[in-house]
Design a protein around this nucleic acid. Structure first.
Lengths: 220, 220
DNA sequence: ATAAAAATTTAGGCGAGCCTAAATTTTTAT
DNA sequence: ATAAAAATTTAGGCTCGCCTAAATTTTTAT
C-alpha cells in the first residue's frame, strides 16, 4: 500500500511528466509539493525501493507500470468525487478541488466503483478532465486549445488546463463551461486576445492567457 | 486542528466514557487503539496540552468541552457517510463501518453539511445510532434493550449496541433491522434466550447475548 | 575547455506517533 | 497494614516525511 504522501508524489509525477511520457526533475517536484529538493530526493529513493518509479540519481524520475496504476487510481478517485460534489451536492466547479485532494486518498475500491455507478459512469469531471476507468485506463480525449482557433469558427468548450479557483470563477461568469458553444468573432493581432460569442449571449473578451488554458473541439 | 490520530483518540474517549460521563483509563484506550499503554500516555499529554482533555496522571482522562465538540464532529461525519453508503450506494449495513472510519476524517464542514442536506437530514445511521447535529448536539434517544422485554410484549427494533459485521449479518438474516416490529413469544428462564416473531415471519430464536445488544422501543 | 551557476544528493536533525524496558503509583488481597 | 499484582508513566529508540547546510554532479556561458 502506498501512503498518503506517496500517492501524492505519484499523482504529481504523472501530471508533471505529461501523463508519464517524460522524466520529471527533482526541483519541479519540490516546487509543486511545497517542500525542499532534499525531501523529494528522500521520497524518490523510497518510491524506487517500492518499484513505483524508475529513478537514477541526477537523471530525474519516471513512473513504473505499478506507479502509473497507483497514480491513475488516485486521479480516478479525485475526479469521481469532484463529479459527486458538483452533480449531487451542488458545489460550484471552482470549490471542489481542495476537498477532492482529501477524498482521493480513501482507498476502498468497492466504494469508488459504487460511486462511479451511482454517478452514471461519468467520462469526465466538472473541469472536462477525463476520468480513468476502473481498469486503470485514461481515456485520452485529444482537444485543441481555444487560442489555436481562427476567427469565424464555431467550437464547443470541453475543459480547462488551469484549475485555479479564480480562473474557474472567471469562466463561470463568462458562461464558458464544458459544453458551451463558442464562436470566435475577432482576434486581436497585437496581443492575440479574442472576442467570443458564448451560447447566444453578448460578446465576451478573453485574453490569450485565458484562451491558452481552455480546451475545445470543433463543432461537427 | 486535530490530527487524524488525535481525532481517533477523542472519538474513542467519547465512546468509552459513556458519552463523556465517566473517566476513561489508559489501559482501556490502549486495548481499543491496538497500541501500548505507554503510547496512550504520550497522546494524552498531547491532548491535554491542546486543552482537548482533562488529564491527571494515574487518574484517567475526560473530554473537555472542546474535545467533546471535536469528537461529536467526527461521529457526525462517520454516521452521515454510513447513511450515504447504505442509502445511496447500496452497501449493506455490515459493510460500511471500516470505510466510514476513513471518511470521518475529511474535515470540510461545507462538505458534511451539504451531504447532510442531500441525505435529507437523517437522525440516525443504518445501525440506529443517533447523528449529532451540525451544532454539535447528540440527539439522545433513550431506548431499552431487547433483553429487558417480558414475554407477550410487542416492540420496535431501533438500533444495536454491537457493530461487529458478523453480528449485523446475523441480524439481517433474522430480519432484525431498525424499524422491524418484534413480539416476544417466549423467554427461557434458564439462559434468558428468547423466541421472537419478527414482522409476521416465522418465529426466531435469539440468545441473551444477542438480545442484550439490541435496542428497542415499546410500541404505542 | 573550463569556470561559474544551477540542480541534486548526502549528512545530520526534528516532531509525530508508535515501540520496549524499567520505574513508579494505585489497587487488591491477605 | 502491607505485600503482591495491576495500572500507569518515564526513558530511550524507531520510522516517516520533512528540514538545513554542505558536498557533489550536471548544465550553461564564455
Amino acid at each position: 500500500m502506498a501512503s498518503l504522501a506517496e500517492e501524492n508524489y505519484l499523482k504529481l509525477i504523472y501530471h508533471l511528466s505529461g501523463s508519464g511520457a517524460e522524466e520529471v526533475s527533482t526541483n519541479a517536484l519540490a516546487e509543486q509539493t511545497q517542500t525542499r529538493a532534499a525531501s523529494v530526493t528522500d521520497m524518490l529513493r523510497k518510491l524506487a525501493d517500492k518499484n513505483l518509479v524508475h529513478y537514477k540519481k541526477y537523471q530525474g524520475v519516471r513512473l513504473t507500470q505499478d506507479g502509473q496504476e497507483v497514480a491513475l487510481q488516485v486521479i480516478r478517485r479525485h475526479r469521481l468525487w469532484e463529479v459527486f460534489m458538483v452533480e449531487k451536492l451542488g458545489f460550484r466547479w471552482d470549490e471542489v478541488h481542495p476537498i477532492a485532494e482529501e477524498l482521493e486518498h480513501i482507498a476502498s475500491e468497492e466504494l469508488i466503483n459504487r460511486l462511479d455507478a451511482f454517478l452514471g459512469f461519468p467520462v469526465s469531471d466538472p473541469h472536462g478532465d477525463p476520468i480513468p476507468t476502473a481498469a486503470g485506463a485514461m481515456p485520452s480525449a485529444e482537444y485543441e486549445k481555444l487560442c489555436e482557433v481562427t476567427a469565424g469558427q464555431q467550437v464547443t468548450m470541453m475543459g480547462v488546463l488551469e484549475h485555479a479557483a479564480s480562473f474557474l470563477q472567471f469562466l463561470s461568469k463568462a458562461g464558458l463551461i464544458p459544453g458551451s458553444v463558442v464562436s470566435v468573432l475577432e482576434i486581436n493581432d497585437f496581443d492575440r486576445s479574442m472576442i467570443l460569442k458564448i451560447n447566444e449571449s453578448a460578446p465576451s473578451f478573453v485574453s490569450y492567457e485565458v484562451a491558452r488554458n481552455i480546451l475545445i473541439k470543433f463543432s461537427v
